[in-house]
Write a protein that binds this DNA or RNA. Structure first.
Lengths: 266, 266
DNA sequence: CGACGAGTTGAATGACGTCAAACACAGTGG
DNA sequence: CCACTGTGTTTGACGTCATTCAACTCGTCG
């Protein structure tokens, strides 16, 4: 029916391979190498969380001192909705999916996260339970910052507060954008925006380098709050319009300008 | 057509009266009374923002010292999207609508806020412009906390950081709930949840006291991300099912349990 | 091979938006 | 008192977008 496009199913993205390589890049050295280098790696994690300019070396060291870490195997829960949250939670490395598990046992991804990144920095401050489930998509290094010690830290390192406030503010900003998108954009615009987000920064016009989807399409759909069927139809429609070119899990954006127009229509 | 229900239009809620009375209650004394009592009122404002237990007296005093205030007349903009945000912004009293002005000049309310409450506590920390427009719905007392002095304050009063973090965390929590609702609930469920929220705390089952809508229905609709037409049909449908009883701007919830079921379906 | 899960496709259904008309009320000026 | 106007809401007809349900294909794993 569409001879120019292979509509056949394609193999799933190889999660185990991807997992392994992403861990090679960021996590395992932390566990395997001598302490001095581990500290340098900690610094890189904090940098990912706080951006730059981040907290000073002394403050980061103090943070590292109160941090408790553990690894969570792929597929296991990091924390569950309703569980009391005594700590600020973050993923130092690996991939974690924030979402919720339906009554049928299926996990719905609402926000995929790839370390280093915060998992829940708000529940602990409010003395409330976690509001979502968090499930490791790959083996992940989870860091917990227990609230009490962090508060004590703020007394001794007031400069740290500014960075914690900043990262919370970043989350507010992101959530507000997200809400706005959901309220005012249709599925096509949201998907276009999703694609734009993972376009390498360079590509401003014309065609861009091929892009590889590294999640199941059903998970992409659930981030966009649409059904897998609708996502499939959307991709086919954009493909037919010549905006993107789809082959299984690899997508090439052919017309960045058109995609941007779509993403901003709303 | 519906002899049991008056379906005729009803006069708008009297905004000017409502405005005046809400200001009588919270704002004007601050401007009119001696300094000692003004401080007490400041305390009440901070309490509204931070909850309890809030910051200590010394910290509140320091906050008050760096605060700059101004009043904004009903209908004027408090700040606009894109405007640089050098301060944490809050409404000490009066009603402010957060939203955005469409290209046609119509203002779409996304979140109504009634002082004391934060208007924008995130943009300033990120050195970013405001992400939304804010428009005074009634005459409002606006307080700005310029970022620089607040940061200096954090050095001297580390305990303050905890409360700022907490209020930001509260906003994260609220936004996350909102996002979740938009993603997974249909219009009827969202409206039911909206009604539940403004039900007095006492009413758990059966019928509840009549409720008076004090915004234009089109503004309620835009908070729910639906059109006024859909809201009208929803109210009629709930009325027909006997869950609520509608007469113009006054709504009585007849069956709290059914409403809760609706609100949680999704 | 057969079972299973992921993805795709089509038809039917439903939810919600759009458009246009009518109505209610407030305020205005005769 | 009565038209007249403007804004807000209601209602109906209709269209569009997205979900649902049910097949069907492909690839993997046993």
């Amino acid at each position: 029916m569409q001879p120019l496009l292979s509509t056949t199913a394609h193999p799933l993205p190889d999660r185990s391979t991807r997992t392994a390589s992403s861990e090679q890049a960021s996590v395992p050295p932390l566990l395997a190498r001598p302490v001095a280098q581990a500290a340098a790696l900690h610094a890189r994690i904090w940098h990912g969380l706080f951006g730059s300019p981040g907290p000073g070396a002394a403050e980061l060291l103090a943070l590292s001192a109160v941090a408790r870490q553990r690894t969570v195997l792929a597929g296991r829960m990091v924390f569950e909705r309703g569980e009391p949250a005594g700590s600020l939670m973050l993923a130092a490395g690996g991939d974690v999916a924030l979402g919720w598990r339906g009554s049928d046992g299926v996990f719905h991804v609402e926000r995929p996260v790839s370390g280093p990144a915060w998992l829940d920095q708000s529940a602990a401050w409010l003395n409330q339970p976690h509001a979502m489930d968090a499930r490791a998509a790959s083996e992940a290094l989870i860091v917990e910052l227990p609230l009490e010690p962090v508060q004590a830290l703020l007394e001794r390192h007031p400069g740290l507060a500014r960075h914690l406030l900043k990262s919370l503010a970043r989350e507010v900003h992101g959530l507000a954008m997200n809400t706005h998108e959901l309220m005012h954009k249709d599925a096509a615009a949201r998907f276009a925006a999703w694609l734009m987000q993972r376009l390498p920064a360079g590509a401003e016009t014309g065609a861009a380098a091929p892009l590889r989807l590294c999640e199941r399409k059903r998970d992409i759909a659930s981030q966009l709050a649409i059904t897998p069927e609708t996502l499939s139809r959307l991709m086919r429609s954009l493909n037919r319009q010549g905006v993107i070119s789809v082959a299984g899990y690899s997508v090439q954006v052919l017309d960045v300008a058109a995609l941007r127009r779509l993403a901003e229509s709303g």
